[in-house]
């Protein structure tokens, strides 16, 4: 339905609110107007559209071959793995399975038999593959460049399907990395369905919990722009190596944003 059609619908019995000027102060859905005591159709449809974007994002899938090609341009090998959550509905109901790497993938990573490295970069769909499709490429490229400049050694990049945040600790350990970073799709809201989060753990190993991690969230063009996110992540990585830890105890660098998650 075009905007003009929606506006025509609005003419039928819809009363706008007198305080529409207050919309300048908040993105909340205020001053929606009314027909009787109900929400006008135009607003009802806009809400539905935002919810549709969020639902589509939750059920979106990673385009693995495309992403693999994109990420391979960094000059690092790229491996695809799966969590133990076989499909989306299982993933949604069993967060425990989304934190575990499936057996076949464990074997793949183990056979790499990699020497110890500084940094493992992991990319997972999380709750919005859309967020990864839109933001991960830029951030991975930026991170790899800056990490190389800083002299950090890098593990192969790992792409995860049906992954939760804590899967980073399993993968980081398998790849013998001193620090793991995961870029993961965040739970879509009505205002943003394409937000990516970045989590970091020092000395990754299975069994760590949220207080051992640092997080940067809302990475997207309209939020924390990917180029700026790269700088923030690098700041956190540097201070993590300096302090030899991540999590609530990590002291903030001047530019770093080390919110506990």
């Amino acid at each position: 339905m075009s905007a003009t059609n929606v506006n025509e619908v609005r003419k039928a019995g819809v009363e706008p609110d007198e305080w529409e000027s207050l919309k300048a102060y908040t993105n909340a859905r205020i001053a929606l107007g009314r027909t009787g005591i109900s929400v006008p159709l135009r607003e009802s449809l806009q809400f539905k559209l935002a919810h549709a974007h969020a639902k589509d994002a939750v059920y979106s899938a990673l385009d693995l071959s495309d992403l693999q090609k994109q990420l391979a341009q960094c000059g690092l090998p790229v491996y695809c793995v799966r969590s133990q959550a076989m499909h989306r509905d299982m993933y949604l109901q069993r967060p425990d399975l989304g934190r575990l790497v499936d057996e076949h993938s464990v074997e793949t990573l183990r056979q790499l038999n990699r020497p110890a490295v500084d940094l493992s970069i992991i990319v997972a769909d999380g709750l919005s593959a859309t967020a990864i499709t839109q933001n991960a490429g830029l951030v991975v490229h930026g991170l790899v460049d800056k990490a190389k400049q800083a002299g950090y050694s890098l593990a192969p990049i790992v792409l995860v399907e049906q992954g939760r945040v804590a899967i980073m600790d399993v993968i980081g350990r398998l790849l013998n990395a001193r620090l793991a970073v995961i870029l993961i799709g965040e739970r879509p809201g009505l205002s943003a369905f394409d937000s990516m989060g970045a989590y970091m753990t020092y000395a990754p190993r299975p069994g760590l919990t949220d207080e051992s991690r640092n997080c940067i969230s809302n990475i997207r063009e309209q939020g924390l722009r990917p180029v700026l996110a790269v700088d923030k992540i690098m700041d956190l990585i540097r201070s993590a190596f300096r302090s030899q830890l991540t999590g609530v105890q990590l002291k903030e660098d001047s530019n770093a944003d080390s919110l506990p998650t």
């Binding site: 908040t26 993105n27 909340a28 859905r29 205020i30 929606l32 009314r34 005591i37 109900s38 929400v39 607003e43 809400f47 935002a50 919810h51 739970r187 809201g189 009505l190 205002s191």
Partner: peptide, 25 residues
């Protein structure tokens, strides 16, 4: 009662001022 049932801070959906008026009516 949340404007348009959309909480822009907690990122979830609940009931709105309009919804409350509906139930009351």
């Amino acid at each position: 009662g949340i404007p348009g049932a959309d909480d822009i801070m907690l990122n979830y959906q609940s009931t709105s001022f309009h919804d409350a008026l509906y139930a009351r009516r």
